[in-house]
Design a protein around this nucleic acid. Sequence first.
DNA 1: GCCAACGTTGGC
DNA 2: GCCAACGTTGGC
Length: 138
Amino acid sequence: MQYWLIKSEPDAWSWDEQKAAGAKGTEWTGIRNHTAKLNMMKMKKGDRAFFYHSNIGKEIVGIAEIVKEHHPDPTAEPGTPWVCVDVKAVQDLPRPVSLAAIKAEPKLADVAIIKQSRLSVPPITAEEWKLLCKMGGL
DNA sequence: GCCAACGTTGGC
DNA sequence: GCCAACGTTGGC
């Protein structure tokens, strides 16, 4: 089991929309960054991911699960290498974890989301996952 | 193959 | 709205 964080601008695709999509999930499309693509290709069915709202909110709002491993991104131009995975909403975080709270926690100083703020699909370690869940009220 | 210019992302 | 980080592009 591996852990990830997936970023979305709520204007484009919000946690509420993800939840409304239900248990069969939706394709996580539109990733156009090779590092993020490589991370998605490592995702396995059943892996968990934090759902993070960038720009608006700037907080982790929920937990999602990978329901289908990587396959070609239908929104990409033919002949390009981009892939997507399918994700579904699992549960809300009782207390959303803000970026400020992550930055204020010394144990999370090295978390990929801070070090590489522009990476849209960073990995999360098991320890970081546990701590972030705790901070989120789980 | 290097590097400057430029575009995009995301926090503030 | 601005700026820093960083990926990509294009000239040499």
